[in-house]
């Protein structure tokens, strides 16, 4: 895992990707108890802002380093990594505001729990709902900050419905 993070940092240092942050299940694990996931999601800001983002530079770099591809993943040092370009305003903002973390001795960045909740409210698959509940129940959420994010991205109504459904009038 640490080696995989080092390779992702290299991609940034070499200017192949701009900013990045860990998202998805692994980001949730940074804040909550371990949950089952099979890949490491990397949300990244492309170097150039184009309408069509290509993953070729990332794939080429990894291929040259001898890493194999498996469907939408690149297997970096034994970890299936999926690179996801920031696909909307919320995700872009989430990466910009990501927080620095350490895995062993290696620095990395993860999305903040408040942004993870907002993104999962947008995607809203069954596993997103489960993960949102883990974050709400097991980590300290800055409710003021979360409210601000949700209002900005017009997700506050959906969040209220979610909380009412699963927690009553909390």
């Amino acid at each position: 895992m640490e080696k995989a993070i080092k390779v992702i940092n290299e991609l940034q240092e070499k200017g192949i990707i701009n900013d990045y942050a860990i998202g998805g299940g692994i980001a949730v694990i940074f804040y909550a108890e371990p949950i089952l996931t099979y890949d490491l999601d990397i949300f990244f800001t492309p170097v150039e802002e184009k309408k069509l983002v290509t993953l070729s530079p990332i794939y080429n770099y990894c291929r040259e380093k001898g890493y194999s591809m498996d469907k939408e993943h690149i297997i970096i040092e034994g970890i299936p990594v999926q690179f996801i370009p920031v696909y909307n305003e919320l995700v872009q903002e989430a990466v910009k505001n990501a927080v620095e973390k350490k895995y062993k001795k290696t620095k990395t960045k993860t999305l903040k729990p408040e942004y993870l909740i907002a993104i999962m409210l947008q995607t809203f698959r069954p596993k997103d709902k489960e993960r949102m509940m883990k974050l709400i129940e097991e980590t300290k959420i800055n409710n003021k900050y979360l409210k601000k994010i949700l209002q900005k991205h017009k997700l506050d109504g959906k969040y209220k419905q979610f909380v009412k459904l699963y927690y009553g009038k909390k």
Binding site: M1, I29, Y31, E33, P34, Y38, Y103, E137, E138, T139
Partner: peptide, 21 residues
């Protein structure tokens, strides 16, 4: 118990994840 698990270091959590897998 779940809250306590949430507090353990990320490296240990990843080891637990492998067990889960």
């Amino acid at each position: 118990f779940h809250k306590e698990l949430a507090k353990i270091p990320i490296e240990e959590k990843i080891e637990m994840l492998v067990k889960l897998q």
